[in-house]
């Protein structure tokens, strides 16, 4: 057991040579490739991540632009809608005014026409009555009255009719 802590220099030197040679050989035949593969994979992941971030940034920019355009279009649509409503209101008022004016005009025309027709009818009636009255009176008083008296009677009758 006393040999437990007694170093064997041959083993020591051989171990150093063995280990250093192993480090060299592994570096040459294994680690360089593995580390290279790892770094390549990490680079690829970093590139992919960067690309994804770029794509996301581009998408966000595009979304922002589209949102702005959408808001702009929405504003324009609202404005145009308001203008259309306003125009509609104006046109409605104009149409209503024109219709009212036209109806009043037509009413006036109708009234005038009615008045004229009425006057005409009255004149006709009046003439007819006068003729009838004259005819009647003339027949009644044909033998008693002169023409002047007859006329006087007719006029008086007409005035009475008018008064009625």
């Amino acid at each position: 057991m006393e040999n437990l802590l007694k170093p064997d220099y041959g083993v020591l030197v051989l171990t150093i040579c063995n280990f250093l040679l192993l480090v060299y050989l592994l570096k040459k035949f294994a680690w360089n490739r593995i580390i290279g593969g790892l770094e390549q994979r990490e680079k690829q992941i970093a590139d992919d991540k960067q690309q994804a971030q770029d794509a996301r940034a581009a998408a966000e920019t595009l979304k922002r632009e589209l949102d702005e355009k959408l808001a702009q279009i929405s504003d324009e649509a609202s404005k145009k809608m308001a203008e259309a409503v306003k125009l509609g209101e104006t046109q409605k008022e104009q149409i209503l005014a024109a219709a009212k004016e036209q109806s009043e005009r037509l009413l006036e025309q109708a009234k005038t026409q009615i008045e004229a027709e009425k006057n005409k009818a009255l004149a006709d009636v009046r003439g007819e009555i006068a003729r009838t009255a004259v005819l009647a009176a003339s027949k009644v008083v044909q033998q008693q009255m002169s023409e002047e008296s007859a006329q006087h009677v007719v006029d008086r009758v007409l005035q009475e009719i008018k008064a009625k």
């Binding site: 007694k6 170093p7 064997d8 220099y9 083993v11 020591l12 030197v13 171990t15 150093i16």
Partner: peptide
């Protein structure tokens, strides 16, 4: 578990 081996590694 050999002191010479661990000493060699420590020396490296």
């Amino acid at each position: 578990s050999n002191i010479s081996v661990t000493a060699a590694l420590a020396l490296c």
